[in-house]
Design a protein around this nucleic acid. Sequence first.
RNA 1: GGCGCGUUCGUCUAGCGGUUAGGACGCUGGCCUCUCACGUCGGUAACACGGGUUCGAGUCCCGUACGCGCUACCA
Length: 480
Amino acid sequence: MTVVTRFAPSPTGFVHVGSHRTALYNYIFARQQGGRFILRIEDTDQNRYVEGAVENLLSSLSRLGVSYDAGPGKEDAFGPYFQSERLSLYRREVEKLLASGHAYRCFCSAERLEAVRNEQLEQQVPTGYDGACRGLTREESDRRARDEAFVIRLKVPREGMCAFHDIVRGDVEIAWSQIDDQVLMKSDGFPTYHLANVVDDHYMEVTHIIRGEEWLPSVPKHLYLYESFGWKAPHMAHLPLLLNPDRSKLSKRQGDVAVEDYLKKGYLPDALNNFLALMGWNPGGKNEIYTLDELIAAFDINKITKSGAVFDVQKLNWMNGQYIKTLDTAEYLREARNWLGTASVNEARLDTALLAVKTSLLTLNEIPEKLAVFIGDPAEPEPEAAEMLALDSSQTALEAYAELLADLPGLTAEGFKDVMSAVQTRTGIKGKMLWMPVRIALTGMMHGPELGYIAEYLGKEENIRRVLDRIEGRQDNRIN
RNA sequence: GGCGCGUUCGUCUAGCGGUUAGGACGCUGGCCUCUCACGUCGGUAACACGGGUUCGAGUCCCGUACGCGCUACCA
């Protein structure tokens, strides 16, 4: 039997990183098993419709390289893949349940339901439907259905235990007495998640349901539905939640949660996938860096972690930095040029500057600030830097540097090292005492990217000009 | 409140009865003939608690505590 997994989000906004992790696991498992991965849009709640949410979802998946075999825009015999386009199917199926006595019509008003609920809350007893319509005869139900609004509820067993196996949790037991007579069909004719997901998973031949832990408590309802229909239930794996640093469920209040937010900040898709895949599953061993293909090869659905995982941005940052470093020059340059923002860098030498900051980047959006050292006039030296500059040896070094440079046709990062060696040979000044004065003269600062890159970026003339500016008593005696 | 799930360094985790409890991030020290970063070599730090079972428990069982989830005509 070929494995079929599905990612079934409801289009209510942006793609949460936790949702993306779920999508990833479904995708990775299907690919690994040589199976199919499908995308189904669970748009059964008309009140939660959000403009553009589907488009956003699709683009998010595509940007992260998670492709589906069937779904929106990729229809096949098992579609359509929008639940809102499958309403007649749900109605047909729920009729079967009504006929077999596994479900019943409920005519209770929203007001009555609320009153019941308040009463239960007050009495401190478990809340849930009180079963008022559960015992209605078929005749009475049919009669009232002609002119009264109703919902259809599942008639769950009242006694005994529901035991099932979850790939992540192992054996789980829940008493049927704890399960409510869940609404399957709303009064607006739309199915609830519970009905729709069971019907669709069956007809779409889904073999493995991989979803968030929040669904674990409703498994009995789903299992009862499968049983009532006479269908075989898929295997299930309920994933641990992603958490905030304070261990509450990952939420907007404590940072970014949308995949798109991270993309906007300059995180690479591969890094994001890698990081998310390792939240809840781990191959063991020293390595933490895995491409999507490597994840597919290494993944083991039986080794998914049980406990929630705190989303640690620091580790994501590190991982993203690792991915940036492994980008080859052409790829990096192409990507980096999209992140210049308003930084006005010398177009002709842009690549030199970009390459100079490559290893120091954690995220691509740091590029403008990292490039600042290359732009405009050198900064005014801090006291410590000015002090260093004033040293006799510094002055000697700078003079030698300017003179030796003047004899050269041009300046490259490589040539810069040669000049520095020559300065050392001539003056005997070396190490920090040699490099610092030059760095300060060129940039005004004591920190920054590798000096050779900066020297190359500025060019011979500008090097000489800046150095001479820092030689005392020589301000009026420029070489240019 | 009820039910369910969970609990190994600060964080992500390895461990599947006998280990000096391993790795990664972070933090930190050294090195890399300039700084920072990179890289590299070290260091720091954990089995929630209490009972069992066993020659032996992070690993199995029970309880307690704490955390989280569910408890809708939302998913």
